[in-house]
Design a protein around this nucleic acid. Sequence first.
DNA 1: TTCATTTATGATAACGTTTTCATTGATTTA
DNA 2: TAAATCAATGAAAACGTTATCATAAATGAA
Lengths: 335, 335
Amino acid sequence: MNKTPSLKDVAEKANVSISTVSRSLNYPEKVDTKTLGRINKVIKELNYRPNRVAQRLRIKEGHRKIIGLLIPDIQNPFYVDVVRGVEDYAYSRNYALLMCNFAQNKEKERMYLDIMVSESVDGMILAPFDKYDQDVINLLEKDFPIVCVDRGLADYQDVDIVLVDNERGAFEAVSYLIEQGYERIAYVGGLPSIPTSQQRKDGYVKALQKYNMPVDNELINFGDSKHDSGKVIVRELLQLEKRPTAFFTGNNLITLGALETIHAMNLVIPGDVAIIGFDDMPWSISLNPPLTAVKQPGYEIGKRAADLLYQKIIEPEKPSVKMMLNAKLIIRDSC
Amino acid sequence: MNKTPSLKDVAEKANVSISTVSRSLNYPEKVDTKTLGRINKVIKELNYRPNRVAQRLRIKEGHRKIIGLLIPDIQNPFYVDVVRGVEDYAYSRNYALLMCNFAQNKEKERMYLDIMVSESVDGMILAPFDKYDQDVINLLEKDFPIVCVDRGLADYQDVDIVLVDNERGAFEAVSYLIEQGYERIAYVGGLPSIPTSQQRKDGYVKALQKYNMPVDNELINFGDSKHDSGKVIVRELLQLEKRPTAFFTGNNLITLGALETIHAMNLVIPGDVAIIGFDDMPWSISLNPPLTAVKQPGYEIGKRAADLLYQKIIEPEKPSVKMMLNAKLIIRDSC
DNA sequence: TTCATTTATGATAACGTTTTCATTGATTTA
DNA sequence: TAAATCAATGAAAACGTTATCATAAATGAA
């Protein structure tokens, strides 16, 4: 593989020093138009591109134009929306994006955090592993620019963060179920250590309380945020003697697991059981029946987070902001 | 933000030269156990991590332990599977992964290709924008280590590539439809410029021919590989006077668009229309009815591609290999 | 004892940039 | 005309590593 041309190659061919070539790229107004023309011609001929690695080594922090994005589960369409938002923002500002998926694996998360620091990113956007995530806290304590999305930290409040009002979203969903006349409503959440799982449960409980309905612990369940746990938990619940008549599922993948079980048991939605999912999906409308769901503004979250990070990078002393976006109940035909 | 410690900081604190510290990291057997102990203690104290940027600048190509992954559409679950395969392989070999989504946008693809080269990756895995992708060909001609997945190049055969036998997968799916007694079978493909769209169409045609059925051009359609085009095209087809009784949809997102239309028109699957999708999805089984689909081994593709790339990097002269994996028809209840 | 080898370490160049400072010649000012 | 300013350029340091080479001390062989 033949080496890509460097400043030196351009300089030699254009008969100037590398300083001048570098200048022609960064401060073209400071070099003679004639020289500039000559240099640009050579650059085109050689198809020269600055080496980002060398650039990053030299340039100081906050000016390197690269940010990191660390997500917990790329198989979850919600995070994919977030990714898209961050991507688009980064692209518009000409930032490169170092994206990693830690697959809700603590060890991987640690590795990727290390890599990002070591790759000298200007900052990063991430959803912490859980609310105790010490590795993230360590970075925050070193004033590393970080914006959290989707999940907060329990003991560290001074962070930029973009959240969804999970409690309210859940409250509205469950209220809607109650208003439709459902009485035994089950909650199936994701990992209990993840803040959103708890917040959605809280919304669920508050809705029941508002309508003076009993809160039955048998109906409150947590899984591991994956397809399979939704499938298994819903099956168990449906085998209860007093089985639930409606489900409020706490995330995408759990919703899909729930649907699998419901269809496998040949139950009709919403006749036999109703369901509302937290997290809409692009194809919720393609389901049969189309799924009623709480839509999180994933794309918007990504964009906002990226903007906050950008602000933080250009003004490190900026006080941190907590931003809460609304989730929206989208009523279709599953309840 | 306080600077992360460098070799120099460790060296000073441990009272040795930076050479010795570097050596202690890379060739620990070459430094005195006593010194080594002292250095390691300091490394731990300062929480020193080598700066990957500086490393990469110094280390020569093929030894930098970072590869790029460039995918056309992160919203398509098939590519997410590929990503997961590549990730796992990279993780197992201790390679970092620079992942980018060009969202089937030529300009973005070019930008990301530039970034990857400029970030000095050892090689990259990608699905070309289309079969004429000149930017990719240019890199290949410079002997840049590249492995293609999912899509090939028309005029450049000397590439490592991992494909799915699309034609055969499509052939089997359509044959199955025919055997089930469906007669007016429509094909709805993705972008016609993408090789897979054509190959799946070819399989469709071959199946019809094998069973001596007419090939009706009215029933062969191409969209843009997105949800919406599936939705629209299927609606048009269903409004034909002699409407199709079965659909063979050419990718994930088109399948979902098709389902949306079918449900919206209150047609029953498979009673009124049958459907087989190319590309299974993790939640195909959660659909109602569970979807019959051709499953591509996305994860496997990712792993194989990563392995091929690894081989190519450590042995650049290795002749390139073309690998074809089978797709598998998974029969559920939609036909 | 003397010379050769081995072991442990350090000094330094190099990777490809950006930036500071110095230098030169040209232009302006007094 | 001399002094001061300005414009255009180049030399060199720095970023944080790795690797080559040199050096010194310790060990071994004769």
